Computed example of a mutant assay.
Amino acid sequence: MSATIPYGRQSIDESDIAAVVRVLSSDWLTQGPAVPAFENALAARAQAACAVAVCNATSALHIACLAAGLGPGDTLWTTPNTFVASANCARYCGADVDFVDIDPDTFCVDAVALERKLIEAQHTGTLPKVVIPVAFAGRSADMRAIWRLADRFGFVVIEDASHAVGATYAGRPVGCGDYAHMTVFSFHPVKIVTTGEGGAVLTNDPRYDERLRSLRSHGITRDASKMEGDDEGPWFYEMQELGFNYRMTDLQAALGLSQLARLDAFLARRRALAARYARLLDGLPVSLPRYDALDDSAWHLYVVRLKHGATGLTHRETFEALRQAGIGVNLHYIPVHLQPYYRRLGFAPGQYPEAEQYYRDAISLPMYAGLSDEDQEIVARTLKAVLA
């Protein structure tokens, strides 16, 4: 049976459609007025100085790493419990990758393990240039502790907050830059708000902002004050570095701007669903997410962990039984270091035991703003029946 209740999906209404139609009827389809309008609204929401919109979050991670100066001979550290893009961005820059295991309570990078690894790396002269903590499922890692470590050990913090648009940390919006040099958001259809595909880098540093804008558009400038040679006329531009075509279109930006207007409603619904799941799943042989961050997390994902031995089913059997019953569960994530590409770089099973154990236990249940109470109750009843 195919899944009838997906694990995630976009929430599109008539205002979103009208916003895109207005762009289709305008003179601009690519980078016109909607892109800076979206950037300004995003920066204002996150209380950041600058937001640079790009075509997806992978490109955002890539140019953030380049803006941080990451290159051959450098190393980036991130968590193994993430989508591969959080590590791949280093490889695009010619840099090496290493990982830090997760906190078993939050599923984010463990700041204590990070400190321990940094001390060892300092002794061997192998400190990272960049560290990318991931705001897993909508909740930030221990960013204050990581920020203190960045000051002590001299690395750049790029928070991969792809799951956390609208979330808060320490009473402030994720993306404000209190505890990260740059923050990356994703606007993929299953994220909190969508632009179809899309991403952004937020920063308070004007030097990063200038470099990010150059890198997203071929390394080209039309600003005469920044040109290395003479301005030869109104048509003139200079390519000053090897950049990319990572631009967001006005179509995407218009959709994102419309979606941002409903961000508070999306967050309120996700938080209500998370609270309902806690009640509906109470007493089942699963570990539920921690709720000390109920009002801080954006609740992009709702992940439960099976208690092995409490039922007669394996992790895979439970997952497949739910899919067969029409519940579109998923698994976030396969530890990055276990992917064939990274195994060929020397990584192996057993290196990050908390992330690997998490992978053996975890199931992502349906979680999206459009999930009805009735469908959520079907998910809970089905999970209860399968586990029984």
Rank of each mutant, 00 (worst) to 15 (best):
M1D: 02
T4M: 09
T4R: 14
P6E: 11
I12C: 06
I12S: 10
S15L: 10
D16M: 11
A18Y: 06
V21N: 10
R22L: 05
L24I: 03
S26H: 08
D27K: 15
W28Y: 13
V35C: 00
P36R: 01
A41I: 07
L42H: 04
L42K: 02
A44F: 03
Q47A: 13
A48Q: 00
A48P: 00
A53N: 03
C55G: 00
T58R: 15
H62V: 13
L70M: 08
G71P: 04
P72R: 05
W77Y: 09
P80T: 03
N81E: 02
F83L: 09
V84A: 12
A85T: 15
C89R: 11
C89N: 15
R91S: 12
Y92D: 13
G94C: 00
A95R: 10
V97L: 03
D98R: 01
D101S: 02
D105F: 04
F107T: 14
C108S: 14
V109T: 14
A113H: 08
L114H: 01
R116H: 08
K117V: 05
L118F: 07
L118G: 11
I119A: 01
E120Q: 07
A121V: 04
T124A: 07
T126D: 02
L127V: 07
V134I: 09
V134C: 06
G138T: 08
S140H: 10
S140N: 11
I146P: 03
W147L: 04
R148E: 15
G154M: 06
V156Q: 07
E159T: 08
A164D: 07
V165Q: 03
V174Q: 00
G175K: 01
G177F: 07
Y179A: 03
T183M: 00
F185S: 04
H188Y: 09
P189G: 09
G198R: 11
T203N: 02
P206G: 04
R211T: 14
R211W: 04
L212C: 14
R213N: 13
S214I: 08
S217L: 09
S217Y: 11
M227H: 02
D230G: 07
P234D: 13
E241R: 15
N245V: 01
N245Y: 05
Y246S: 02
M248Y: 01
L251G: 03
Q252K: 13
L255Q: 15
S258K: 12
A265C: 08
R269L: 10
R271Y: 05
L273K: 13
A275H: 04
R276N: 14
G283T: 10
P285R: 11
A298D: 09
H308P: 11
H308S: 14
G309I: 09
G312S: 10
A321E: 00
L322V: 08
R323T: 05
R323Y: 02
G326N: 03
L331Q: 14
Y333Q: 00
P335Q: 03
H337V: 10
P340H: 05
P340A: 08
R344D: 15
R344W: 07
L345R: 15
Q351R: 05
Y358I: 02
R360W: 03
L365S: 13
A369K: 05
G370A: 13
S372D: 00
D375H: 12
Q376H: 07
I378H: 05
T382I: 12
A385Y: 06
